[in-house]
């Protein structure tokens, strides 16, 4: 299990970042995909934006964007009046037979 997966298992969403290019390297990698320099690792913001969604058997899944650089497909736990651009929180992440990302609509967006 690599660093990304290990951290994910502990509900920490970390990503590689290139200090020279000042950008997140996604998907996570040992080297920057721009300059091939060594990366550092940091926790990524849990704030996300809803870009698209659909639904299977009553369970909503979406594409969400984090820090304007990382796009993920994850579950939405409290879907209601979903709108594109809505603010989400990465409520939980995990790793069991693969990655899991679980988003929640931010409360203020529901008011």
């Amino acid at each position: 299990m690599n660093r990304f997966e290990q951290e994910l298992k502990n509900d920490n969403f970390v990503c590689s970042e290139c200090p020279k290019c000042q950008k997140l390297v996604w998907p996570p990698s040992e080297y920057c995909n721009n300059c091939f320099g060594s990366v550092t690792w940091r926790k990524v913001s849990r704030d996300a934006t809803l870009l698209e969604y659909s639904c299977k058997n009553g369970e909503y899944f979406c594409v969400a964007e984090i820090e304007g650089q990382i796009r993920l497909v994850g579950k939405i736990t409290n879907p209601s009046d979903l709108e594109m651009g809505q603010n989400l929180t990465l409520e939980r992440c995990g790793y069991e037979d693969g990655e899991k990302f679980i988003f929640k609509i931010k409360k203020q967006a529901l008011e």
Partner: peptide
């Protein structure tokens, strides 16, 4: 593809 999370099947 890590970005697909648990939704790796093509129907997603």
């Amino acid at each position: 593809d890590k970005s697909r999370g648990q939704y790796k099947h093509p129907i997603y």
